[in-house]
Design a protein around this nucleic acid. Structure first.
Lengths: 353, 353
DNA sequence: CTGAAAGCGCTTACAG
DNA sequence: CTGAAAGCGCTTACAG
């Protein structure tokens, strides 16, 4: 069995291939059904019949029409067709960075549920986008409803989306629209109790936030620990990535003597923490206990496996889609009164704590 | 700082909220610009001016129109608008399973590049989809060009996509359309040499395929090893997941005495291999060397870090988009003669081999 | 500041 | 088997 042929690679066999305009003579650039009809000497609806494999057309005519269509590189306009057929339902999903494993996990949950209901999904990754505002606006123009992470830009994006209904995921403060809260508070209490029981003395919270700021999640962790008599350190990691988690951990380990637990903002950062501990010869959970947040399957693949505050992302997707479809059906208000749902984390004990 | 409010959770405050039809009196269900114009007692283009924030409208009229629009839950049709404005460029991306970390890695590369050029991306995950065929057809109806993994269903999907140009990623055999090969052949040769140099004697290839089948990639590995005098075992894992990699490894380790290298079909399976080795007390790379394919960043987070055949997914995205845009611009043929590009893997030595 | 007219590209009845 | 007519919902000139 040989590898793929290499003759064509990097050297397309089409040098000097004439452009569409040159071959077709269509001045506007793109052929319409009128152009094809004229070229084939038939009416518009005969072209429709040929293109869509409908009945009521002779084999000869069909063949002639299809040949002209191909010659003119004719592709029916999705707008023209959608206008008359109504088109499919289209869901917009705004996410932050597909390279963070949390994102595809959420996206796949939304995607699966949407597909079951016959909805298509358009994705906007506002972290990867060169121009997030334009991207969000374009998303709104192409979709019937938008779900997603809006963060601090939500007011601006609410404007850009115009009349498109919106469901915010994990709002950072009281939302103006429909929203699904993802609430770690209960799980953090359970976790804090667990740390007490296992004899932890000097926990550190590794947040994902600017140095002068603290995330809601980080604040909840610190508060839960304080109420149990701890004096937790709060460390601000700038990026929510494994690299950042690793760097901060190396710094912490170099500085603190008596540290015996690290609560990371999310699983990905926690994986970085584990890596740093491993390299520093710090035993987890023997010397230091490590906990993440999110419940990514990934956490079960590392050694030690990662204890985490897990979210049921299928539930998040279900609630979000429920709100979105309810708004579209007119059963829920589009604006003004906000409708909210909550999905809570739960402590998933694995090996690292 | 308190957690999110819980008053509203699970108990929407909108019980008995009247439906759109009840409030608006629009029989068809959804209001159009005509309905709003009639309700506000103005013409259609005055409604357009109000909705789109255009000039040439008095504040009073604007306010009245917007109020009626909101009351009727009016949202402009994307088809009506697109027909006249032309609409945005829309790229369709067909992928296999977002939960496999390879997929978002590829998707994010495509996404970033597309966004730079002002394109939106619609995603179809044909593994998660309940009805993949319908999904692909819907994708074609909403997009200007489709890129993606088609596997063995490509002929059927080619039909479903109709006139929408298509770029196949990593075809399993000679494609009928434009395609980007992802070719591990060179890297496999380099890897095989490396295994020889490091004294490996009894390598096993852990493929992702049916028991009576072998993937191209697996076959290339076996062949490269044979040509160097090895008698490699070929194991068929059914799923290409970490779980599957782990299970098969446990089985292999239980059976084989002299195994000293495992070449996995992909990184995710290799992570399962590492996990199984760890649990069985088998040292990697001391007792067994482990290699994956894909070059996922994830492989740098585990212990030992994963040696792998890496692909430059940015290059894959670049080639694929180049072909797609070339076809749309009429610079490349849409059908018939196929245009192909190739991106090659390269050996990325980390700790596991 | 406002509206009557034309048209975007397609499909769906309806006649022949 | 084929075509003339109407219409999907919107925006873009153009007149007033």
């Amino acid at each position: 069995m040989a590898g793929p042929p290499r003759l064509t690679s990097g050297q397309p066999s089409t040098e000097g291939h004439p452009t569409l305009e040159q071959t077709s003579g269509i001045p506007g650039g793109r052929a319409t059904i009128i152009d094809v009809a004229a070229a084939a000497g038939v009416s518009r609806q005969t072209v429709t019949r040929a293109m869509n494999g409908m009945s009521g057309i002779s084999a000869a005519t069909k063949q002639r029409v299809l040949a002209e269509a191909e010659r003119l590189a004719y592709r029916p306009s999705r707008f023209g067709r959608g206008l008359v057929t109504g088109g499919d339902h289209q869901l917009g999903l705004v996410v932050n960075d597909l390279r963070n494993p949390y994102t595809p996990q959420l996206a796949s949950a939304v995607f699966r549920l949407a597909a079951e209901q016959g909805w298509n999904v358009m994705l906007a990754d506002v972290d990867l986008a060169s121009d997030a505002d334009r991207m969000v606006q374009a998303l709104g123009a192409q979709t019937d409803v938008v779900i997603g992470y809006l963060g601090s830009r939500r007011e601006r994006w609410r404007e850009l989306l115009g009349t498109v209904p919106m469901v915010e995921l994990d709002p950072y403060s009281e939302p103006q629209t429909a929203a699904v809260w993802i609430d770690p508070a209960d799980a953090i209490e359970v976790l804090a109790d667990h740390l007490v029981e296992t004899g932890v003395r000097h926990p550190v919270v590794l947040d994902n936030s600017a140095p002068d700021d603290t995330s809601v999640r980080g604040a909840l962790m610190v508060d839960a620990l304080r109420r149990r008599g701890y004096l937790p350190d709060l460390v601000h990691g700038a990026h929510g990535t494994a690299e950042c988690g690793a760097e901060e951990t190396t710094r912490i380990l170099g500085r603190k003597r008596r540290l015996d637990a690290i609560l990371a903002f999310n699983d990905v950062m926690a994986l970085g923490v584990l890596q740093s501990c491993r390299r520093a010869g710090v035993d987890v959970p023997g010397d230091v206990r490590v906990v993440g947040v999110d419940g990514l399957p990934l956490g079960a693949l590392v050694a030690p496996t990662l204890t985490t505050l897990a979210v049921d992302l299928d539930a998040v997707a279900r609630e979000a889609l429920g709100l979105a479809l309810g708004m579209l059906a007119g059963e829920l208000p589009l604006q003004g009164a906000t409708v909210q749902r909550t999905v809570r984390h739960s402590l998933l004990l694995r090996e690292s704590a």
